[in-house]
Design a binder for these strands. Structure first.
Length: 294
DNA sequence: AAAGTTAACAACCGCCACAAC
DNA sequence: AGTTGTGGCGGTTGTTAACTT
């Protein structure tokens, strides 16, 4: 694949755009569109490379861009989405109309990352989770279905301590059914147990009593290979659209009451695949079979 | 007031995916 | 099937304004 020559070598201008350049670019795109960014600057009479024009338009000049300070709600949304998606700024931006990936990335690095870093998880989970968007347990199944993880990535928490109660002893678990039902997930991109480690870290730091059996081989491998970042029972519950954790359900060694106590407020972890995965977990771990028909 | 530091954000770079040929 | 051109993405840098000493 040939690389486009850099702007400087072509004698093109770099650096900040002038108002005049902006006006030329806006005017040209409004009249002619931008079907070919590479050809655009020449046609518009701009001494810029196509890439620079595209960036300027996409990040700054587009009429549908919302400029100005981020609202608290937007910031919370970014934090939540970043927990789910990692540094996938374009995917996050897609959920925030009018905001660009570049802007979100900047806000993350200058504000939100620091805010999270300063935050110490010493309170019970239900209080601490208020940092995230307040949950909506009434979320319908169809709404959950519409939400989707496009591809997993270890979540944000910087170098969480590794909760070492689980170390997989084998990788022989049959994950084919999980892989199939997670067809929208891109080729099992989880390459490490980072997200699981992080959730273990959360469990540990919020005094949830999880014993060594919580992460059995099957569960570990299912989660790992499904591409789903959420690894906590309550998250699957909410992603599945259920209002309550089914009584009598045993998730590993964790019973219903423990989950309710520990995750009372919960928080939304929207995954399309979470629902199917929930059904699968119910079947595999001996949960309430009746729920599978819901 | 000047110098140094930090925060904010625009812009660039290099890589990748994918469509077109 | 292989090659090429292009758009898009995420990481990083550069610039400048704001703040602190």
């Amino acid at each position: 694949m040939g690389r486009a020559p850099c702007c400087e070598k072509m004698g093109l201008k770099r650096g900040p755009w002038t108002p005049e350049e902006d006006q030329v670019l806006i005017s040209f795109i409004l009249h002619h569109g931008h079907s070919n960014w590479r050809a655009l600057p020449k046609q518009a009479g701009l001494l810029r490379c196509g890439k620079s024009c595209r960036l300027r338009w996409m990040n700054y000049l587009r009429p549908d861009i919302k400029r100005g300070n981020f609202t608290q709600e937007e910031e919370d949304t970014i934090i939540n989405l970043h927990q789910m998606l990692g540094n996938r700024w374009s995917a996050i931006a897609a959920k925030l109309p009018g905001r660009t990936d570049n802007e979100i990335k900047n806000v993350w690095h200058t504000h939100l990352k620091k805010r999270l870093k300063d935050y110490q998880p010493t309170k019970p989970r239900s209080e601490n989770r208020k940092i995230s968007k307040s949950k909506s347990k009434s979320k319908s199944k169809s709404e959950s279905k519409n939400a989707r993880i496009l591809g997993p990535e270890p979540a944000n928490s910087p170098n969480p301590p590794y909760y070492s109660s689980y170390s997989p002893s084998s990788s022989t678990s049959d994950i084919s059914s999980v892989t199939l039902m997670s067809g929208e997930i891109e080729d099992n991109k989880i390459k490490s147990g980072e997200s699981i480690k992080q959730d273990c870290y959360l469990l540990e730091n919020f005094d949830i009593d999880i014993d060594q059996n919580f992460w059995n081989d099957t569960l570990y491998n299912d989660v790992r290979n499904s591409g789903i970042v959420a690894t906590e029972p309550a998250l699957y519950l909410e992603a599945s659209g259920f209002d309550e954790f089914p009584q009598g359900f045993q998730f590993g060694s964790v019973d219903t009451q423990t989950v309710l106590d520990g995750y009372g407020e919960g928080y939304v972890h929207e995954t399309d695949d979470g629902m199917d995965f929930w059904y699968d977990l119910l079947a595999r771990t001996g949960g309430d079979q009746d729920l599978q028909g819901l």
